[in-house]
Amino acid sequence: MRLVLADDSVLLREGLVRLLEEAGHEVVATAGDATDLDALVERTAPDVAVIDVRMPPTNTDDGLRAALRLRESRPRTGVLVLSQYIERGYATRLLTGAPEGVGYLLKDRISRVSEFLDALERVASGGTAIDPEVVRRLLAHAARPDPLALLTAREREVLEQMAQGYGNASIARNLVVSQSAVEKHVGSLFDKLGLTHTTGYSRRVLAVLRYLGV
Rank of each mutant, 00 (worst) to 15 (best):
M1R: 07
V4E: 08
S9D: 12
V10L: 14
R13I: 12
L16D: 02
R18H: 05
H25L: 04
H25D: 10
E26S: 13
V27T: 09
V28K: 08
A29I: 04
A31I: 04
G32N: 08
D36M: 00
L37F: 13
D38F: 14
D38L: 15
A39M: 04
L40S: 03
E42I: 02
E42V: 03
A45F: 11
P46I: 08
P46N: 08
P46W: 07
D47F: 06
I51W: 09
D52Y: 08
V53H: 05
P56G: 07
P56I: 10
D61L: 12
L64C: 09
R65E: 14
A67N: 09
L70K: 04
R71W: 09
G78Q: 11
G78Y: 11
L80I: 04
Y85P: 00
I86L: 15
E87T: 10
R88Y: 10
A91R: 13
L94T: 13
E100H: 06
Y104L: 03
L106P: 07
K107G: 05
D108E: 15
I110G: 02
L117K: 02
D118F: 01
E121Q: 11
R122N: 02
R122V: 02
V123Q: 06
S125R: 15
G127N: 00
T128K: 15
T128D: 00
I130K: 09
D131P: 00
R136M: 10
R137S: 11
L138F: 04
L139V: 10
R144K: 11
P147A: 06
L150N: 09
L150H: 12
L151F: 06
R154Q: 14
R154E: 15
E157S: 14
E157V: 04
E157P: 00
L159D: 01
E160R: 14
Q161L: 14
M162T: 02
M162F: 04
M162H: 02
A163C: 15
Q164R: 09
G165C: 01
G165T: 01
G167H: 10
G167Y: 07
A169R: 14
S170E: 15
I171L: 04
A172Q: 07
R173G: 00
N174Y: 05
L175E: 04
V176K: 15
V177I: 15
S178D: 11
V182R: 08
H185R: 13
H185P: 00
G187H: 09
K192S: 01
L193E: 12
G194E: 05
G194R: 07
G194L: 07
L195R: 07
T198L: 13
G200L: 06
Y201E: 05
Y201L: 03
S202W: 02
S202P: 10
R204S: 07
V205T: 11
A207T: 05
V208H: 01
V208Q: 01
Y211I: 00
G213Y: 12
V214N: 01
V214K: 05
